[in-house]
Design a protein around this nucleic acid. Structure first.
Lengths: 316, 316
DNA sequence: AGTCAATATACCCTAATGTTATGAAAATTG
DNA sequence: CAATTTTCATAACATTAGGGTATATTGACT
């Protein structure tokens, strides 16, 4: 015979509360309702659950063993409620994000770290990809959110885009670089250093030529290409190489003193870094939470960048 | 928000069974019923439990974590059902019995042992007492069943009595006793040995005089009195003492070769050993089970006693 | 594209559960 | 020990969650 788990919970509540009336309050039901529920349970079980004619209701041994299970059930039910609440407030769950490697490594990774500090039960699933892969993965439902530089005009149909940071590229080098230590230098000097090119196919790669062209440099030597941010920084630290990086990336690395920006005004790309997602997909709470978190982080970051950048890089 | 434990069970069933329809079968409900239950749950949670528009129904992560609890609940519910079934079949629970010490130790204890072998989850709560205490304890609800010699006529109002064994007392002694080794002896010889008297107040004590009187012995020396069965047997084994015991007790001890009965025909008491209980009290299944068990054991015992007794004791 | 199998909806109905008012009985207290 | 209080049970009634059958809908597969 199957016993309704609810009834077992009520049983446990009565016993733990020390009385039918108190138990009724504990499960927020009326006293008669609980009384009748017990009576029906007894009838179905064909056994008494409380000794007859005792006013401080005394449970039988059967009742006690059933209440044991009732407690377990109440506990599980409570846990379920909590995890549902957690989930729908975005405090647990999974957010699957993907983005361009340089940004993910140079900017987002830091934010993920602090996000995880605040919401440790949210699992972040991070992968890499450029625009084409991102739209593909979003459509396939493999990721929830893309993060990449997009020119607002080129957002594909069916996708939503929320800009976070305007694109500002800078010429980056190691802090120990000869040019970084000069207060002033000629643009022509720049061209003589070896260049690190971002991974082929990345938006940065095309930015590189455009940016240098904008300051009259068309001829330069590429000494290293295709690496991740980590390898770019390593190469840069051990050489006199230059490269073009988003200022946000340089800024985020500034505390580690591995990279700095030269005070050269480049032509900035039309693109803005932002979120990309399919607008026809429901947004899971954890994703929503993560998005909001990054948005506020980026707002702070954007201010800092604007101030520091104006002072140190495009002061010209 | 409180989640109905039943719904969590259903969730678990669906996932474990690998489909809504199979899950419905698993919880023995119709498919539409389960479908609607899920839909309502989703509405209340404000979150999807299964991904929309996927035919082999795919659970969301929230669903999985809820199902986890559902499994716990199903398990607890199952356990509760089982323990209820066990209980109402008398396979678990408690039986509180009390009886006269000599019978409890000499006869019932053995039966309890075998009963416990058959029903290990039934707790037997054994205490001692004579008629007066038994009726008192029964009325107070401290015990479920009394076991003692009662003359059918003297059953108090409100009590029920079920006879198990007619009273047959014998003269008992150690197997090594001089009289036990003789094939024949005069009754007068008996009187010369020291006597062990049963505990004062016990029915046996009054039986002692009556029985010996019936064979013409009125003058005898009491060397030991008041002990339990164990002490009586010990004293008897180490001396040439005689005593009067129920033949059932002597019979049950026969395998241990610590006591034997002299072939003397005594006047048997009017009383019969039997169960005593209050007929206005509901009988718990475990008590019922125990009672039935003892009844059948006693039936067998009664036959054995009748045969063996006729052959060895009251053959005269 | 058509078929099949799985899930969702519509509809009706029963039974469980809730509420308030009230009765009964055990426990407590003067 | 009678009066009172506390606690539980019952009655009567309203509501609705939840069950079933029949049927529509929709992914998935050939």
């Amino acid at each position: 015979m199957k016993i309704d788990p609810n009834h077992l919970c009520i049983l446990a509540a009565i016993i733990d509360a020390g009385g039918l009336s108190e138990g009724a309050v504990a499960v927020s039901k009326s006293q008669p309702s609980v009384s009748r529920t017990i009576a029906m349970l007894e009838a179905r079980l064909g056994a008494r659950l409380f000794e007859k004619g005792r006013r401080p209701l005394r449970p039988t041994e059967l009742c006690l063993s059933l209440a044991e299970q009732g407690r377990i059930i109440a506990q599980a039910s409570e846990t379920a409620s909590l995890s549902a609440a957690h989930y729908s407030r975005g405090k647990s769950g999974t957010a699957r994000i993907a983005g361009t490697p340089i940004f993910m490594d140079g900017v987002i990774a830091n934010m993920i770290a602090s996000f995880q500090g605040a919401f440790p039960k949210v699992t972040i699933n991070q992968t890499y990809g450029y625009m084409a892969e991102l739209t593909e993965q979003l459509t396939a439902g493999n990721i929830d959110l893309g993060i990449c530089p997009v020119s607002a005009a080129s957002v594909p149909a069916g996708f939503a885009f929320k800009p976070l940071l305007r694109g500002r590229n800078v010429i980056a080098c190691a802090p120990s670089h000869p040019l970084a230590r000069k207060s002033a230098f000629k643009l022509a000097d720049i061209a003589s250093y070896p260049w690190i090119a971002p991974p082929a196919g990345s938006p940065l790669y095309s930015d590189l030529r455009g940016a240098l062209g904008s300051i009259g440099i068309t001829d330069f030597r590429v000494s290293f290409t295709g690496g991740s941010l980590a390898s770019i920084l390593s190469v840069m630290a051990g050489s006199e190489s230059l490269t073009v990086l988003p200022y946000s990336v340089v800024f985020m690395q500034s505390h580690s003193k591995t990279v700095t920006a030269l005070p050269v005004k480049l032509k900035h790309p039309e693109r803005e870094l932002g979120f990309l997602w399919r607008e026809d997909r429901p947004v899971r709470p954890a994703v929503q939470r993560f998005r909001k978190y990054l948005e506020s982080e980026f707002q702070v970051l954007a201010n800092h960048i604007e101030q520091k950048g104006r002072a140190a890089v495009w002061r010209a």
